[in-house]
């Protein structure tokens, strides 16, 4: 507890060796750099800075506490959002499908191909495909196309092995469904996902 006499002294600067609370707040905003020896050596300022830092830390966790205290949202709240997103937003480029009829304009969207790649990669198990990019001009038949995939694997999986299986699965599906000329499939593992695992499980 503080009594208001002490606090008044804070704001008129008497207990802060001539510094103001706002000055100290700015100092905190700057990460206390460059170091100000006058502030750092003042016991009054140090107490005030500690209080400001606590207040800031508390503010930062406030919304997380608010969120945790909220009753779980029902599914209608989620579907209210999902029902209103534009599916075409991520369709990407149109990839041609050949047909002998002159009036035929057949395409598969880049979004559909990325969906295929995700499904094929995920089906291997122990890995989740993330962002996926098709390099090269997919709108021109026969162009060399490279696939770049970002993925995360489950803790304990042997990465070279799983990457080989994923590349194989994706290549098979792409050949089956599309007419693109895939020349490379690069897989980057950005994260190893840890869930209730003990260290010896990787030591194989």
């Amino acid at each position: 507890m503080t009594d208001s006499g002490d606090l008044d002294a804070l704001f008129d600067g008497k207990s802060l060796d001539g510094h103001s609370i706002d000055e100290l707040s700015d100092y905190l905003d700057r990460g206390r750099t460059p170091a100000d020896p006058a502030i750092d050596s003042s016991p009054g300022c140090q107490i005030a800075l500690a209080g400001l830092a606590r207040l800031r830390a508390m503010s930062e966790t406030l919304v997380e506490t608010d969120a945790a205290a909220e009753p779980a949202r029902d599914d209608s709240w989620v579907s209210g959002i999902l029902d209103n997103i534009e599916l075409e937003a991520h369709a990407g480029r149109d990839i041609p499908i050949q047909h002998s009829a002159p009036a035929a304009r057949l395409v598969i969207t880049e979004g559909a191909v990325r969906g295929l790649i995700r499904a094929a990669g995920d089906s291997v198990g122990g890995i989740l495909i993330g962002r996926c990019r098709l390099d090269g001009d997919v709108t021109v038949p026969g162009e060399a196309i490279g696939v770049r995939i970002d993925a995360s694997v489950f803790f304990g999986e042997r990465i070279p092995e799983i990457v080989a299986r994923v590349r194989e699965a994706i290549y098979t599906e792409l050949l089956r469904h599309t007419e693109l000329n895939f020349t490379s499939i690069d897989v980057t593992i950005h994260d190893v996902h840890h869930v209730r695992s003990s260290p010896e499980e990787v030591a194989e």
Binding site: L82, I85, L87, A89, H90, A91, G92, G111, R114, G115, R118, G125, G126, I127, L128, I129, G130, R131, C132, D150, A151, S152, F154, G156, E157, R158, H190, D191, H193, V195, S198, E200, E201
Partner: peptide, 30 residues
Amino acid sequence: MKAPSERRGSYSLDDADDRTLAGRAADGDV
């Protein structure tokens, strides 16, 4: 000790890291 393959099916989207989820969503995964 469990073989990794026994847990394979349990790596679902709900467990995925933010980068994986954001990447998939950017590519159109609802």
